[in-house]
């Protein structure tokens, strides 16, 4: 039977992270001359969410630039949505070959929280490791354009009088944590309603089924005038007008809610890193080149997202992000777990 408590997975995770960094140091020495030929066939990218979603879009967008630095490789995509990403991670760990030809492109924020909450068999640090992030975006709260609510202050005041409903793609998600933390800090009452994805969640807010919605900010920016962004879970609003000049949440309420963001990035089997350090080195270096290539930022901008969405992070930075996320999951996990009968 499943239970909903969080067991500290940080230690095992940290151990894995240290090992990953070690493996990287090992791989820095040129072990083989044959590595220049990598990859000889298509690279498979597993996406733990559905086709047509944000991760799918970003993976494909990134790959168009990445292939330049990766021997003109071609990419194959497969989708394993389900149980907040758990299905995809378990499949990646158990069923795909650890040979550096199989990578996972995930949503680091929500999926690390999922790992803490749902304890899948595939363990971060032991079975797989995130080795880079390509993008990063803050969480926000927004309302549909027809909503009577026009500011975060107003929303919180309302939520002190009655329970305010908030659409979210899923409970184990940094955006959900943000809303619950805001409720805890201000005494406002929020009810999270999981809609299973960014698109249906936004739709619920736009059509007025729920009072507001919480999602990563690019979802809201792309919806342009259809929505009004009320607040951001970041230190400052670097998007300005694009994000409706919404104030950061802590500036309004003087609270100390941690910054909440989600990165997208690649994960790889730990075993693949150890067995094929030469291949892994090529992957890691080429990802970095592609992520820092202005062509990638151009593509992102062309697709209607802010340029600042692109934020490369290497292995250490990504490991640190994952640690922060695990700490958050531990702190706020009890708010997301169901009340026992």
């Amino acid at each position: 039977m499943k239970d909903f408590t969080i067991t500290p997975t940080r230690r095992s995770f940290l151990k894995g992270g240290a090992m990953a960094v070690g493996a990287g140091a090992l791989s820095a020495s040129p072990l083989s001359k044959a590595w220049a030929a990598f990859p000889e066939r298509n690279i498979s990218i597993l996406i733990p969410t559905g086709e047509g979603g944000g991760a799918d879009r970003d993976a494909r967008m990134f790959a168009t630039v990445w292939r330049k630095y990766l021997n003109n490789a071609n990419f194959e995509y497969s989708y394993y949505p389900g149980a907040a990403g758990q299905v995809g991670y378990e499949f990646y760990a158990a069923k795909s070959e650890p040979d550096c030809y199989n990578l996972l492109f995930g949503n680091l924020g929500p999926e690390i929280i999922m790992q803490a909450m749902q304890k899948p068999k595939a363990t971060l640090g032991k079975d797989f490791i995130y080795f880079c992030q390509t993008t990063d975006e803050t969480m926000c709260i927004f309302v549909g354009k027809n909503s009577k609510i026009t500011s975060i202050q107003q929303l919180v005041d309302e939520a002190k009088k009655r329970v305010v409903t908030v659409a979210t793609s899923r409970l184990p998600h940094p955006a959900s944590i943000g809303v619950l933390a805001l409720g805890e800090a201000t005494g406002a009452k929020f009810q999270l309603v999981p809609f299973g994805g960014g698109n249906p969640s936004a739709m619920a807010a736009i059509t007025g089924e729920v009072d507001c919605c919480t999602l990563p900010i690019t979802n809201a920016i792309q919806l342009d005038k259809e929505v009004l962004i009320l607040t951001l879970f970041s230190k400052q609003n670097v998007f300005g007008e694009m994000a409706d000049n919404a104030p950061p949440v802590n500036d309004v309420f003087g609270t100390k809610i941690p910054e909440l963001s989600s990165s997208r990035g690649f994960a790889i089997h730990v075993k693949a890193m150890e067995t094929y350090p030469d291949r892994f080195q090529i992957i890691e270096e080429s990802v970095k080149k592609a992520a820092l290539d202005p062509e990638y930022a151009d593509l992102v901008e062309k697709a209607g997202m802010p340029r600042s969405f692109v934020r490369y992070g290497g292995r250490e930075e990504t490991v640190a992000f994952a640690q922060d996320m695990l700490a958050l999951a531990e702190k706020y996990g009890s708010l997301l777990a169901p009340k026992k009968k």
């Binding site: 039977m1 499943k2 169901p338 009340k339 026992k340 009968k341």
Partner: peptide, 10 residues
């Protein structure tokens, strides 16, 4: 049998 321990919504 598999849902006996679950919360009401599940």
């Amino acid at each position: 049998y598999t849902i006996l321990d679950y919360p009401m919504e599940a």
